[in-house]
Design a protein around this nucleic acid. Structure first.
Lengths: 125, 125
DNA sequence: AACCAAGGTTACCGAATCGTAACCTGTATG
DNA sequence: CATACAGGTTACGATTCGGTAACCTTGGTT
């Protein structure tokens, strides 16, 4: 489990520690649309494995961005949702999207799926 | 040298690739104040080594965020500045700062230096 | 002759990150 | 009896990332 430092010299580095890594922004993005079950997340994030999904969700939970709720049913049901603090990340993700779009335009990199600034606005409540 | 992918599924991941890692946001932050020489950057980013600074600057240059200018003098003088594209990152960094500040407030993490949202606004042109 | 400066490069190493595959629980279905 | 389901855990490897220390050039200073 990745631990945050007890002191940071710059808020930006804290953010990088909290949402950095290969999968976290995908997860936050998906939860942006509403509560999701483990399997739903796994299916909507192409390429992610169970292990990485669990690990990243645990870290997000531990850092207060995501809440995990277990329903005592069979087969098991576990739902994930973003916390208030997690919701406040949206402007950050939005700005990142905007810049990414400008970057791809300037550099002819292609965006082969529909996760752009526009989608962000559509998926946000 | 870290290469970007030729296709991205999400603009956010592109951003993470371009400014991720341990040092890049520090560098961008410092260059936000104006042109800097290699030694100046090295001195104002505590803990960074020559190797990491060179490496990260080269990647930033390669990805179009930073411009490197060599002056043919002795001792050598090399200046770094942010490009137009790099300048457009500022709203992203700003939002990251804002969120980081909220996070630290909610979680009693301390910010032992002066790199907060307020500073950002002061250092921006 | 020795040492300092700026702006690096290189070889090497340990740590962190990411991925693969197997395994687990308990119920239901073929 | 075998298989599938959801939601994981575990052991093991490979790759990437970051850090240390030595070395380089050219000129000036001690």
């Amino acid at each position: 489990m990745k631990q945050l430092q007890s002191e940071y010299q710059c808020a930006i580095n804290l953010v990088v520690d909290v949402i950095g890594g290969k999968w976290k922004v995908f997860i936050m993005w998906n939860l942006n649309e509403g509560n999701k079950r483990f399997k739903e997340l796994e299916r909507s994030i192409p390429g992610i494995t169970k292990k990485m999904l669990t690990q990243q969700l645990r870290e997000l939970e531990h850092h207060g961005l995501v809440q995990r709720t277990v329903f005592e049913e069979l087969p098991p049901r576990v739902e994930y949702e973003t916390t208030e603090l997690g919701k406040k990340l949206q402007p950050v993700l939005f700005e990142m999207c905007k810049w990414g779009d400008e970057y791809t335009e300037a550099n002819k990199i292609s965006m082969n799926q529909c996760w752009t600034q526009q989608d962000f606005m559509n998926s946000s409540p």
